[in-house]
Design a binder for these strands. Sequence first.
DNA 1: CGAGTGATTGACTGGTGTCAAACCCTGTGG
DNA 2: CCACAGGGTTTGACACCAGTCAATCACTCG
Lengths: 242, 242
Amino acid sequence: MASLDKILVAKLKEHSRLSGEDVAVIRGFSHSIRELVPDEDFIRQGDDPDVSAVVISGWVARYHLLPNGPRQYLSFHMAGDWPDAQALFLDRMDHAVCAISAAQVACIPHKEIIKAFELRPPIGFAIWRETLIDAAIFREAITNNSARSKPARMAHLFCELFYRARAGGLVRENELTLPISLPQFGETLGMAIATINRTLSELRASRTMDFRTGLLTVRDWPKLCVIGQFDPGYLHLKRPPR
Amino acid sequence: MASLDKILVAKLKEHSRLSGEDVAVIRGFSHSIRELVPDEDFIRQGDDPDVSAVVISGWVARYHLLPNGPRQYLSFHMAGDWPDAQALFLDRMDHAVCAISAAQVACIPHKEIIKAFELRPPIGFAIWRETLIDAAIFREAITNNSARSKPARMAHLFCELFYRARAGGLVRENELTLPISLPQFGETLGMAIATINRTLSELRASRTMDFRTGLLTVRDWPKLCVIGQFDPGYLHLKRPPR
DNA sequence: CGAGTGATTGACTGGTGTCAAACCCTGTGG
DNA sequence: CCACAGGGTTTGACACCAGTCAATCACTCG
């Protein structure tokens, strides 16, 4: 079973430098593990949590709940991600976080994290940077859903998830377990399910990727990036994967 | 002429508590004022700035430059906003910032700000919170451009800008100077110019607002909020305006 | 074995993008 | 002082993309 400290330190080091002392403080974070079943919310819109969750395994998603009932998915998160870091300094959650597969999250008390910031500012800067990369991903999603063609939109999402997962070591043989359903893609990309499916067939026909039953297979990475207009700069990772 | 310290402290206090010492440090920030003409870029995609800009007067916007030429506007910023705060911890700008009207920005050296964080963590927390509210605004933009009808989309943008401007004291008699052209609205909301114009007529016909030559007039705020499904919670302001 | 969800495909229609033209306004240069 | 250029705004015509609706099939889970 993966442990919090390894996953978290590895993730922060993808973009930030941490000294031995910093790492020691992070490793000392007390936490409890929470097991989640698919579709289980662990933070709801309006909550004011006093613990912060780091994903240990599985996938989680953030979403807005719309007045009429449906959702708008905002981002997807894998092991090492910190999907509710912004709750450290914002009182009420403006969106919800749910598991989209079976997942484990580690819950760390806010107080402990804040204390670490005051003790060792670089830890704060690293986590701040994490939230800033989050924001960059949101910006890219605005552009993706507003300015790109439907196939580019979908390809870009696949590129981003694949790239991030590869950086986190979750990709084997160009395959990535991605438990997202077509209706969920629809509520992510702002497209009707029928269009999602037709666009997906189109992408399959381009022989750049395949996606079936929660498994993403990338067959021609450079070409897929071209279709999706994907440039990973906005992810601000120090060392690109591979 | 408005001065940096007043504007900045007032803005941060909209969402954060600052002690007298914190305020004193912020007032001590050295800075230079830069005058901008409409459409002038002051940060470009790919830059690695070593100063951070706070808007003193006028409006600025952040945008992505798309490969084919057009832009995707991401957010608009008014006096007191800190449109490039994320550059404090991210090396390369993943988007550009430009003036959309004549504007003044105050440039503060990064080093000085970082030093302030180490000296007085609450200052860091306040600015961190500022960047987190930014992120919340981006999330809302994803939902806006992906899940809402065209009229709701446009109404929501008007609501957000009006609400934020009112909190910043920029609204007089329900009027707000908003120097955004229809093509720019198109590149913000992901709609063609023709549709922008038709949707705008529709909103005008609802008698909730008017928009002409850069002047937004709100006539029926509650109804406009209903049309735009606007709930200001995501702006995380301590004291709502009015 | 039925219920529920997801995946897939087809038919239809309305919304929205594209194209085009006209008008207004501003600033510029002759 | 006027003519012109350029950008923004407004409106119309038209075609097609994509959303809605519907039906079928596959699969999982009680």
